[in-house]
Design a protein around this nucleic acid. Structure first.
Lengths: 97, 97
DNA sequence: TGATAAAATCGGTTATTTCCGATACCTTTG
DNA sequence: CAAAGGTATCGGAAATAACCGATTTTATCA
């Protein structure tokens, strides 16, 4: 993944917001939408206040750039932060940007 | 400046390239286009291979987000990296993103 | 002051992004 | 197997960004 793609993913208020919410799933989402693999799409959609398709696209975009980790579990798809990737990005900016 | 604006500024290959070139002005640009305040617009434009207006817009965008520092000197405008802002951005990602 | 040179701004075309509704795809459950 | 729930994908309208040429601004210098 090119760095420019990661920055594109981050250059949107709603997507940045998702990353913030996912820092503390149980605080920001009802427990039934959370598991150890993150938060399901539907709960994130509700909180975002956009259509299901938009929420799904934003989440899969963040996943493609490596910022989120996706886990399918039954009929649910859970997304959680990829803390490692975020740390790497921070280091990259400090060292290489 | 909102963070999303900084990420927008970084979500473009040409603008990332400018930041890279400015890490070592004398290596990447002829000496007559460089001074302690950075590199003049014309030299950056030549290296980018775009029109003067495009180069000027990209540079002023990077400056508005705080990533570059601009210094007018006679008829020349010099741009250099804002190392402090870049460091702050890296820290922000590590700590708050 | 007039010519020249560097850079910024303006107006416009094209490409990309945003965000939606509709539809298709899985998975569970009756 | 059919229905229903959760999610992904598709197609498109509107907003925004990319990038250009032309013009304007600012500064130098004869």
């Amino acid at each position: 993944m090119e760095h420019v793609e990661v920055f594109k993913a981050l250059s949107n208020k709603a997507r940045l917001q998702i990353l913030q919410w996912l820092k503390d799933p149980t605080k920001n989402f009802p427990a039934e939408g959370c598991c150890e693999n993150g938060v399901c799409v539907g709960q994130i959609q509700l909180k975002m206040g956009v259509t299901q398709s938009t929420a799904s696209e934003y989440l899969s975009l963040l996943q493609r750039t490596g910022l989120l980790i996706v886990t399918r579990q039954g009929q649910w798809t859970y997304y959680k932060r990829n803390e490692n990737a975020i740390k790497e990005l921070g280091k990259l900016i400090l060292e290489d940007l």
